[in-house]
Amino acid sequence: MAPGTFVAFGVFFVLGFTLHGALHAGLSAPASRTFRLTRGSCLTGLFTQCIVSLMSTGHMLLGLLAEGERHGYELKREHDARFPAARPLAFGQVYATLERLRKSGLVSAATSVKVDGPQRTPFTMTPAGRDEFERWLTEVQPPSPYVANPLSVKVTLALLTAGEPLAQDFLRRQRDAHLSRMREYTRLKSRPDSSLAEVLAADYALTHLDADLRWIDAALERVAELNKELHSCPVR
């Protein structure tokens, strides 16, 4: 790869990282933070967030309403039970989203009733809501045209500014951090009481961490070569 092309890729990665900052926020500093996996929150982890983020809360709530009338509290509880891998969903987000769906004509609200104390408003999916949900459900998510790789950006900048030892040291420490996280997911999924949903969510995270780790190994093998390339023809 020509040096200019490499730098262009670097810029592309930086832009990609910025655009996907929310999705990859956890990945950017796994070694520097104490991140304790919990049975639920671990599956809110780094990678499952990507899928959950791509899926709008509105479509998820429409899907839960497909089974029949629910009020916000029931939807929140059902979300937590059905999607252990999902990022925690706040009650406020549920009610705000339901209100948006109602204004868009995708759900309708019945009169509030008193259930176990507080007043609760039951929501029902409208025909338009069902059409929208079915459209979304059958729509293929386009594979991302590129993959943001913040590790690559860091390696390039380490080589340009500090040299090969620092780049290698970073890659080795990053590898340790990735493998450490993989151990946590592996122990989680090996627990006899882990549900299949939890096992599959852990598998999703493990697969992505493993892909990163393979890249790190390849980069470690080729970092000297890359260093020569970067310094042989500086970009103006």
Partner: peptide
């Protein structure tokens, strides 16, 4: 509730 159940200590210790 997701996020509220903690793994046993031996997972992390």
């Amino acid at each position: 509730m997701p996020g509220s159940m903690t793994l046993p200590d031996h997972i992390h210790s």
